[in-house]
């Protein structure tokens, strides 16, 4: 692991550290590995977070208080489109990873941009859907069902949005710094995050939408 650690150039009082030999490189490598593990644990806490939202949705799914039901207002075609878009973006983020492992910075950035664009179109479709629902008279305050619906779907959408901002920041960092152990780790964890969001969406799709229109 002889990557030059250009990150230590700073003018800190202690910065009399000329030699970055193998040992320090190894140090650094361990740190990146640890951060990836930490992020994995964060994802598991997110599993619990979504689990709680799903539990709430399932418990309140019949409580429409005489208002519109999901089956009446949900329009599946848009949802199907966004499902395939998100599935594809999970795949493209995987290709970005392959490009990175091949050391191809341009390919990596290109595939990340494609992933981000797919993510953005997913968000666009979701916002359109929400606007449509509000026009049809279903808001977060309509009934317990719609409160749970908007919160669950919206929390997932918020996660995707955060992922988009993060991915953009990462693309800028990659174009500036290239593929280093640090940026490599960052790409790795954002792709984990992206796959995770895909998994969550599959359950949103199944439980909220498919079972909602059955």
């Amino acid at each position: 692991m002889a990557h030059a650690i250009d990150t230590h150039k700073g003018a800190h009082g202690h910065s009399a550290h000329g030699s970055h030999d193998g040992h320090h490189g190894h140090d650094h490598h361990d740190q990146e590995e640890m951060k990836t593990f930490g992020f994995w644990l964060f994802l598991i806490t997110d599993v619990i977070l979504f689990g709680t939202l799903f539990a709430t949705f399932v418990v309140l799914r019949l409580n429409t208080a005489g208002g519109p039901t999901g089956a009446e207002l949900i329009e599946l075609p848009g949802i199907i489109a966004s499902t395939f878009i998100l599935l594809t973006s999970s795949f493209t983020s995987g290709i970005a990873l392959l490009e990175m492992n091949r050391g191809n910075k341009k390919g990596l950035i290109l595939w990340l941009i494609i992933t981000a664009l797919l993510g953005a179109s997913f968000i666009y479709l979701e916002v359109t859907e929400f606007i449509h629902l509000v026009h049809e008279g279903a808001t977060i305050g309509t009934s317990a069902y719609w409160s749970a619906f908007f919160t669950l779907v919206g929390t997932h959408g918020l996660h995707v949005t955060v992922g988009l901002v993060w991915m953009t920041a990462l693309i800028i960092q990659l174009s500036r710094r290239g593929i280093t152990p640090v940026t490599k780790r960052k790409v790795n964890i954002i792709s984990l995050y992206w796959h995770f969001l895909d998994v969550v969406w599959i359950f949103v799709f199944t439980i909220v939408y498919l079972m909602g229109v059955m």
Binding site: T45, I48, G51, V58, V59
Partner: peptide, 14 residues
């Protein structure tokens, strides 16, 4: 472990 707890939350709540 996370999945077990998650399933507990969902199934237990239901």
């Amino acid at each position: 472990f996370g999945l077990v707890i998650m399933l507990t939350i969902v199934a237990g709540s239901i």
